[in-house]
């Protein structure tokens, strides 16, 4: 990653010729390296499959997610048949349809919580790394506090308490309120790793010569942060965020599996929670959502691995 490749340095209006002779940008170089990485591409394909189901879910899913008609025809807990490709569960829901709709919830959870975490993390870490000194010390202690607390168990308590607090208030009328709460809580507890990376990158980049050069040319602080430091910090941040998406999806699944999820939303963790007790009678209803979680988490993990190698080719021999 050399900084001569940096696309956005506006030297002057007459620099068109300079632009044309420049080599491919760092994102394109990374993509070229990424394409050669088989596991990384496999991860990307898995993520794209999940994305596909999330986007076109309502058009391709055989039944409505709340369709319990199989129950009326005494076909609940039926093994996979042509009518229900992945079978039906104990409530008469079509497993395939629920799993397809679950993709939407999963991506909503993963991306939503990471948006919250990224905003927090980049603000905190960036500020910490850019200003340094006392502010850095304070912010880093604060980050460390969040890094060592037992996040998962704290989240469980928070989710449960939130569920009690909202009863009888106006908030209760918001659809999917519990799911949104879980997303926000996951985001609020998911920012420390992002802050750490952001701080390290800001610390490293602010001392670089091209930042010095921009400063000498009279660029303001905001300009330096947003046009020179942040774009160069993005590769590392994208990797940690991709990992975070997978982790958030897994955490939501765990929260739902333990029975603390949003009962009104169709999520893979919820499906496991509802069907786990009938594992012996209808295993397909538990295996399908479990596989879906596995594939999604695997996809994001492999994608993040591939991106790490693509952005830092020197790490790999």
């Amino acid at each position: 990653m050399t900084h001569q490749e940096e696309k956005n340095i506006p030297i002057s209006k007459g620099s068109e010729t300079v632009r044309k002779t420049r080599g491919p940008g760092m994102w394109r170089l990374a993509w070229q390296r990424f394409k050669r990485n088989k596991t990384g591409v496999f991860g990307l394909v898995l993520v794209l499959i999940v994305l596909f189901f999330a986007m076109v879910g309502p058009w391709i899913s055989p039944y409505e997610p709340n369709d319990q008609s199989a129950m009326l025809e005494f076909r609940s807990k039926s093994p996979p048949t042509w009518k229900n490709l992945l079978g039906t569960d104990r409530m008469g829901y079509d497993v395939a349809s629920r799993v397809i709709y679950g993709a939407r919830t999963a991506l909503f959870v993963g991306l939503g919580s990471m948006v919250v975490a990224a905003v927090f993390g980049i603000l905190m870490g960036g500020l910490s790394g850019f200003t340094g000194g006392m502010a850095d010390e304070l912010l880093m202690r604060f980050t460390e506090f969040f890094l060592v607390i037992p996040v998962f168990v704290v989240i469980l308590v928070m989710v449960r308490i939130f569920g009690i607090v909202v009863v009888g208030t106006v908030l209760e009328r918001i659809p999917h309120l519990n799911l949104i709460a879980i997303i926000v809580i996951l985001g609020v507890f998911g920012w420390p790793p992002i802050a750490r990376i952001a701080r390290a990158e800001f610390l490293r980049l602010k001392e670089m010569e091209f930042v010095e050069a921009a400063r000498c040319l009279g660029a303001g602080t905001l300009n330096i942060i947003f046009r020179h430091i942040l774009p160069n910090a993005l590769p590392s941040l994208v990797v940690i965020i991709a990992l975070g998406v997978g982790q958030s999806i897994l955490l939501e699944a765990m929260i739902s599996f333990l029975g603390f999820g949003d009962p009104k939303s169709v999520s893979w963790g919820q499906l496991l929670y509802f069907n786990y007790e009938h594992l012996k009678i209808s295993p397909w209803a538990s295996i399908a959502p479990g596989m879906a979680i596995f594939i999604t988490v695997l996809g994001f993990n492999l994608l993040a691995d591939g991106m790490t190698d693509a952005f830092n080719p020197r790490l790999k021999e």
């Binding site: 997978g246 699944a253 765990m254 496991l272 295996i287 479990g290 596989m291 979680i293 596995f294 695997l298």
Partner: peptide, 9 residues
Amino acid sequence: SMPGFFTGI
């Protein structure tokens, strides 16, 4: 990447 509970199941 395997969720622990899925391994268990």
